[in-house]
């Protein structure tokens, strides 16, 4: 019998050696349960796990754990995201226990976008601990059954621990080392920032493989399909550490009026197929932002269907 850390569907798929395919669901700006269920229906059967963002871009939304519970009811394997911006170590540990108590089995540990970007820029920022310290804290809770202060936990949480990595952010030469730190801290899997420059990602993965990091941790490459030329430009200029090669923008433009979205999907599909062959890449994390209904199509075109079932 395989020994699992949490026994989440994502962990089982990865441990069985399948190429994983994960999706994302941004909770609504309200208590709209139906909106979450609708997104869940698009993703069901197409992905192995679904990330649920935690007040992404520092804009208030339904809490990640609560949307995770709705996804779980819909039969999906949620990946609970937690950022360090809004909670101190007390709130973090209690939420970690809380999600585990409700059967959520994946968790992604992030620093979080600074609140100055968001809809409550006047908010006090917390950052009691950082993302790497959060990873070690979850690992300590799970593996040692201890709180951050060293005290014993009565039934430790069982979570498959994830972390993010931006291979394109500066200082570039340090990024692979920071990834190594996250793995040392206890990350079981990594989901990268969205990739557009495949050449640079290939170089990054080469360093990852040279350092043997892919053997210590599952690395899922992040893909966000471009919906329009405007979105590509926004990504290129407004999102820190994101590089969109000019040739991709040209392709979207060249697709003609009303066809950029189709071209964007085509590009994403090609990327997924290429990533599938890339050494060290254990899967793809598809962040189809407010485009959940296109995920089935992308999954099908990329040859990701049907998703494996591991018992």
């Amino acid at each position: 019998m395989t020994e699992y850390k949490s026994g989440s569907n994502l962990e089982k798929v990865l441990k069985a050696g399948h190429f994983a395919f994960t999706g994302e669901c941004g909770p609504p700006r309200g208590a709209n349960v139906e909106a979450v269920r609708k997104k869940a229906q698009h993703l069901k059967g197409c992905v192995d796990a679904v990330n649920v963002t935690d007040n992404q871009t520092a804009v208030v939304r339904m809490s990640s754990w609560s949307a995770c519970l709705i996804l779980k009811e819909e039969g999906l394997d949620p990946n609970f995201q937690m950022v360090c911006r809004d909670r101190n170590r007390l709130a973090m540990q209690s939420d970690i226990l809380g999600v585990s108590a409700h059967g959520i089995k994946n968790m992604l540990c992030l620093s979080g976008d600074h609140q100055r970007f968001g809809d409550h820029p006047e908010a006090k920022n917390v950052y009691d601990i950082d993302s790497i310290q959060l990873i070690s804290m979850v690992k300590k809770m799970r593996d040692e059954g201890k709180f951050l202060n060293g005290e014993q936990i009565d039934v430790p949480p069982k979570l498959f621990i994830g972390a993010a990595c931006n291979p394109f952010a500066e200082p570039l030469e340090f990024r692979v080392y920071r990834l190594a730190k996250k793995i040392e801290a206890g990350a079981d899997f990594i989901q990268t920032q969205c990739i557009y420059n495949m050449d640079r990602f290939r170089e990054f993965m080469k360093r990852v493989v040279d350092m043997g990091l892919h053997e210590k941790c599952y690395i899922l490459a992040g893909i966000t399909p471009l919906k329009s030329v405007g979105m590509a430009r926004y990504m290129a200029t407004q999102v820190p550490g994101m590089e969109v090669p000019e040739e991709l923008i040209k392709r979207l433009k060249g697709a003609g009026k009303g066809k950029a979205a189709e071209e964007g999907i085509k590009i994403a599909v090609e990327q997924i197929q290429e990533l599938r062959e890339m050494e060290g890449v254990a899967g793809v994390h598809l962040m189809a932002i407010e485009w959940e209904h296109r995920v089935p199509e992308i999954a099908k075109l990329a040859g990701m269907l049907p998703r494996p079932k591991v018992e």
Partner: peptide, 26 residues
Amino acid sequence: CSKSLMNGPCGGSNHGKCEVSPEIDC
């Protein structure tokens, strides 16, 4: 550091500047 990170830099480091503002050094 805008996020007081002890194990930085975060993914928002942008050409030596902080994601919060180009006026702030990372």
